[in-house]
Amino acid sequence: MSTPPSLPANNPAESLQEFVARTAQRDLGHGVFELESPRFLEVNLNGRMNTKTGSMVAYHGDIKFTREGMLDHGVGSLLKRAISGEGMRLTYADGNGKLYLADQGKKIIILKLQNESLIVNGNDVLAFEGSLQHKITMMKKIVGMMAGGLFNVRFDGSGLLAITSHYQPLTLRVQPGRPLMTDPNATIAWSGNLNPTLKADVSLRTFLGRGSGESMQMRFEGDGFVIVQPYEEVYMQTTGG
């Protein structure tokens, strides 16, 4: 496996030939999912792949893209999308070839689930294999509809899953008797055995217009883990298909 040439620290300029060689795509032989860089995912497609709508950057080969239908996962899923106004929107990539995905320059993490469960913020799902069962979930409290990032996807089974994070994520343990509170806008994913609740912490700062994610918190109890990012992501409300 060849290593791309590095740029000399004392000479930031490089020839066009050097730039092309340094940034060229390389076959790493890692299987279906390969990281071309920390922010570019290469999918070696042979069949169907579920991808986040709008994440396709480029592709080689014979690939057809189909937008997920609003009723593909039933009326219940449709209602959850309508209430939340945002969440994971899928495009099916079918065919054979190489597909390159990215999402706003966010760091990409490839996970291999082995008969396991993981719940992921809908905005942080990039791609996943069809062998994984997925189901849209929402926080039970109605106040959850007021906060971004509470439209989640539960994955069960075995298969590859690519998720995204602003910068390097941190995984925090949750242990019995030691609950963990997180900012909803910084929470990426958590183990499937945890069922978080929402905790409102409204203070004077909130009414003065200085409130942030601290005024609404996710509370995790039990035995598991939570993945957070060093960034409070603001989720834009969208409508329609």
Rank of each mutant, 00 (worst) to 15 (best):
M138Y: 06
A58W: 10
H73T: 05
K112T: 13
K199M: 12
G54Y: 06
Q168V: 15
I63D: 04
G97K: 08
N50Y: 03
A21D: 14
G54C: 08
G130P: 04
E36A: 11
A24T: 10
Q168C: 12
V226K: 03
G159T: 11
K135Q: 14
H134I: 02
L99F: 07
G29Q: 04
D156P: 01
Y59Q: 00
V120D: 08
K52M: 05
V174Q: 10
K64N: 12
L35E: 10
K106Q: 14
N44I: 03
M146A: 13
L35F: 07
N185F: 01
T197F: 02
V75N: 02
A200I: 14
G29T: 06
P176V: 04
A200M: 15
N185M: 11
T206G: 00
I119E: 12
G148S: 00
G211I: 06
N11K: 12
E36H: 06
L204R: 10
G209N: 02
G209T: 02
V32G: 03
E232P: 01
S15W: 00
L16T: 08
E68K: 04
L90D: 08
V57N: 11
N11I: 03
T23V: 08
A186V: 01
L194H: 06
L35I: 08
N96L: 04
M1Q: 08
V153T: 14
V57T: 12
T164M: 13
G211D: 12
L45S: 09
R22Y: 03
P12A: 06
S131W: 05
I109F: 10
D94F: 01
E42I: 01
D156R: 05
E116V: 00
K107P: 00
A93G: 04
R154E: 15
S215K: 03
E68M: 01
N121S: 11
M139H: 07
N96W: 01
A186Y: 01
S165Q: 11
A189G: 10
S131I: 02
K199P: 00
F33G: 07
D223Y: 05
L28H: 14
R205C: 00
L111D: 11
Y59H: 12
F65G: 05
S165M: 13
T137A: 09
G74L: 05
G31N: 14
L101D: 00
S77N: 14
M70F: 11
P38V: 01
T197V: 14
A189W: 12
I110W: 02
V20I: 15
T206I: 00
F220Y: 10
D223R: 07
F151R: 15
F225V: 06
L118R: 15
I83Y: 08
T23F: 08
F128C: 01
Q17D: 15
G31R: 12
T206D: 15
L180G: 00
P196H: 01
G224K: 02
N152R: 05
S131N: 13
L161C: 04
D201L: 07
H30K: 14
G87E: 02
Q104C: 11
G148P: 08
R89W: 09
S165P: 10
I108K: 12
V226M: 01
G97Y: 04
L160I: 00
G149S: 12
M218T: 06
N10C: 03
L28T: 09
P179E: 10
F207D: 02
L161R: 10
E14K: 04
R210H: 07
G29E: 08
L170M: 11
P8G: 01
A102C: 05
